[in-house]
Design a protein around this nucleic acid. Structure first.
Length: 509
DNA sequence: TCACTAATAT
DNA sequence: AATATTAGTG
């Protein structure tokens, strides 16, 4: 039995009272190994083994983790016992459940990297590669969060990719914003008359538009995964801020200066890629027709895109939120366009509409009915590419078609191309089964019952103390209030448990 | 202290 | 060019 709860204070109580494991809700991808491990242990030993820090520590340490651990040692973090870093410990430390409560903090390179070579000489901190998959997740996160709320930490959480760090995201976000800015400027220029361009350019680089406007354009970043478009105008040195536009164009607008990688992102994605099946107008198919408002000072252009290809007019849905408080004014925006489409006047609409679509299938389910079948489909197991040095394992306990390891990476370099999308789905599915209902809610979960390969548990150790969690009480009538159980059909692809060893050998987490 | 961003380094 | 790291800010 394990306990899932949104209240991390329940951890001690749960474990004290006999829970095999405590998992905070919402369940993260990084929690999956614990669940797997428990199920596997049960299958092998006939009973579960309480997940403690000790009995799993150092047993399964992924390359990324090793790297990170070493790095932390090098940084002197070993002097102060870290509680748990969601990024660095994850599955190695099963008892570490407060995934978000502490995070690795960079402690300036004072101690250097010499110590790093103590136990694992060759491993070096890897350089993250933002693969299409990661990019998709990144963009999804931004879409989900809305641009103005998309800050590294939230993006990171939403992406739910264990090895990612906030710094990774921050850096990428910076690049992303720069890209948007660039695109906006480009689009901006395309809107201006030659005279206007001359006027602006004669003052050096574009710093601030004379008016507060944005130009319709599309970013390859967005077009790959977002069916909305964000447009971003560089604020003039903090004076006017910038605005974003949202359009619903149907094909990519391509700009020469967009890196090829991004330009072609859509096309490089297979059918599996998320939200990539959009067509957007390419630049040559676009007409920009716009009416500039005439009252300078508080005016906007009101651009609309004509996508010749489809013959449909793609209109700017709106841009800008008044008074949003992006704290460096990068994202702050002013005025908004009046869109031609009623009711779609705000940027947030587009995002929200996406979210509506995106989440329409999401239905929370009472934990009392956690046995019903999930609705999402798990693609069949496919080949998996690995580093050569990561072992011979070539399968994972769930679909691995999205997992990619870069053969070109050096040894020790993090397999940053891993696509956690599917595992994310797993964890998300769990979260549907065990939704976060209220603060402090909990689920007692029998990890064995629902598993086709594991017999029903009868080895749940009677708790020694009473608990506020009914199921954890010695005299609790289990029959009357059975614990939930994980629907292992979610995980039982390719006989998950049998492959778990391999899974852990890899230890992606 | 933490998180964010811009600037800078690699 | 793409990421990582640092420094300044709130």
């Amino acid at each position: 039995m394990e306990v899932m709860s949104s209240d991390t204070n329940k951890e001690h109580e749960s474990l004290t009272c006999g829970a095999m494991c405590f998992i905070p809700k919402p369940i993260k991808v990084t929690d999956l190994p614990k669940i797997y491990q428990l199920a596997l242990n049960y299958k092998r030993n006939g009973k579960s083994v309480v997940w403690t820090e000790n009995n799993h520590k150092d047993t399964y340490v992924s390359v990324p983790q090793q790297i990170q651990l070493l790095s932390e040692q090098a940084n002197g973090l070993n002097t102060k016992k870290k509680t748990c870093s969601s990024r660095s410990m994850t599955s190695t430390n099963g008892s570490c459940v407060r995934a978000d409560s502490s995070r690795k903090r960079k402690s300036n390179g004072s101690s250097g990297d010499d110590v790093e070579s103590v136990s694992q000489p060759t491993k070096k901190k890897s350089k993250l590669t933002w693969t299409d998959e990661l990019q998709d997740l990144f963009l999804q996160a931004i879409k989900h969060l809305t641009l103005e709320k998309a800050v590294p930490k939230k993006i990171l959480e939403h992406m739910n990719v264990p090895y990612l760090t906030r710094e990774n995201v921050a850096s990428h976000l910076q690049k992303y914003r720069q890209f948007l800015r660039k695109v906006a400027e480009q689009g901006l220029l395309s809107l201006l008359s030659i005279q206007e361009k001359d006027s602006i350019l004669s003052h050096g680089p574009i710093r601030e538009p004379h008016y507060n406007y944005c130009t319709p354009s599309s970013t390859s970043w967005y077009e790959t995964s977002l069916n909305n478009r964000l447009f971003y105008c560089k604020p003039g040195q903090g004076l006017l801020g910038q605005s974003r536009l949202l359009s619903n164009t149907r094909e990519p607008v391509r700009f020469n200066q967009i890196p090829h990688k991004y330009m072609n992102h859509s096309s490089t994605n297979g059918p599996r890629s998320i939200g990539s099946n959009f067509t957007l107008p390419i630049k040559t198919n676009l007409n920009f027709s716009y009416q500039a408002s005439q009252n300078v000072g508080s005016t906007f252009f009101e651009p609309s895109l004509m996508a010749n290809k489809t013959g449909q007019s793609s209109q700017v849905l709106g841009f800008g939120q008044h008074g949003n408080n992006f704290n460096n004014n990068m994202m702050s925006s002013y005025g908004s366009l009046t869109p031609n489409q009623p009711g779609h006047s705000h940027f947030s609409y587009g995002v929200q509409s996406f979210l509506n679509n995106e989440n329409s299938a999401y239905k929370t389910r009472s934990h009392a009915h956690a046995t019903s079948q999930p609705t999402f489909e798990v693609p069949p197991l496919e080949n998996l590419n690995l580093y050569d040095d990561l072992g011979n394992t070539n399968e994972l306990p769930c679909d691995t078609s999205n997992f990619q390891f870069d053969h070109n990476k050096q040894q020790g370099e993090v397999a940053s191309t891993t696509n956690f999308d599917l595992l994310t789905k797993f964890s998300n599915e769990l979260n549907k089964n065990f939704p976060l209902e209220e603060d402090g809610d909990w689920n007692c979960v029998n990890i064995n019952q629902g598993h086709s390969n594991v017999e029903a548990s009868n080895t749940f150790a009677p708790p020694e103390t009473t608990s506020s969690i009914p199921n954890m009480n010695p005299n609790h009538d289990q029959a009357q209030d059975d614990p939930d159980f994980i629907d292992w059909s979610l995980f039982d692809q390719q006989d998950l448990v049998n492959e778990y060893d391999d899974f852990m050998d890899f230890n992606l987490f």
